[in-house]
Amino acid sequence: MVNNIENRILENDKRAAARLITMLENKDPEGFRILKSVYAKGGNAYVIGITGPPGAGKSTLTDKLVKAYRKKGKRIAIVAVDPTSPFTGGAILGDRVRMNDLNTDKDVFIRSMGARGHLGGISEATSAAVKVLDIFGSDIIFIETVGVGQSEIDIVKNCDTTIMVMVPGLGDDIQAIKAGVMEIGDVFAVNKADRDGSARTAREIEMMLDFNKTLAWRPPVKMVVATENKGVDELVEAIEAHREHMLTSGAFTTRRIQNAKSEVVSLIKERIEQSILDNAHNEDKLSTFSKEIVSRALDPYTVVERLYEEIKDTIHIK
């Protein structure tokens, strides 16, 4: 048992923070009671997303970025998200392997999360963890996540600055990435710049970014070799420039308000869905009507109209 979490978390107590994150992952009502009681103390941490294809060097780069920010005396937290097996629900969360030196730094807190198996989705779970680590007293929170899949993309949408990590030789992949997530990157890092083709990859990214000339912020593209700590200071400068832009242009607050709005909407959706499905009567009706939709006795639109009026009253927002 971990007692007195609400006071301990304000005193930078790691065990209290760690346990509160677990409670929120579990949707434990006591966890939400505690988070609500300390929520007003937060809002001070800057949140940096690190995304890109698997194996691009995100964890290695995060380790180096954290070391650079530690030199500036910043207190750091990292939330590292790794894929979960869709078959067993299990996962091997291995990002800490690349961050071993950070393990004995008392001003660094690292939390690993499996991508699946969270009620409401991983983006909700990471967002709760970020709130805890902010209140706990972190100056900067890094979120590492693979840049494939909508739920992972939703995570980085919630960050103040998002770094898109690319590597040479992505070939056609770069087209796919362009379609999905290019617009999410505030800063681009071409990692593994010790390899052939990195200059070309950087040029391709620059060209894609130049297609969109209406941007208020033109994302810079930086070459780095994470394993050798090369180009990391320049990357930090680019991050700081973006942060400066966010704060002076007002985009920082606008983005946060937008994120708060979408968070509330998704929490409401989740509540309503849960409330409907918790009611066995509703489940039965849904099943019956669904069969009739398939046999064409009814259409889905009529079903929605009929059910809405009835189901409305069974929604209990706890």
Partner: peptide, 30 residues
């Protein structure tokens, strides 16, 4: 791998860990 296949979430920290590093990780990862 066996624990993962049994549905557990395994936090793997790699080689040459000191007792301090192990305990710090265990606390943060709850």
């Amino acid at each position: 791998r066996a624990l993962r296949d049994a549905g557990m979430e395994v936090i793997y920290t790699g080689l040459r860990q000191t007792a301090e590093q192990i305990v710090n990780a265990a606390i943060q990862e709850d």
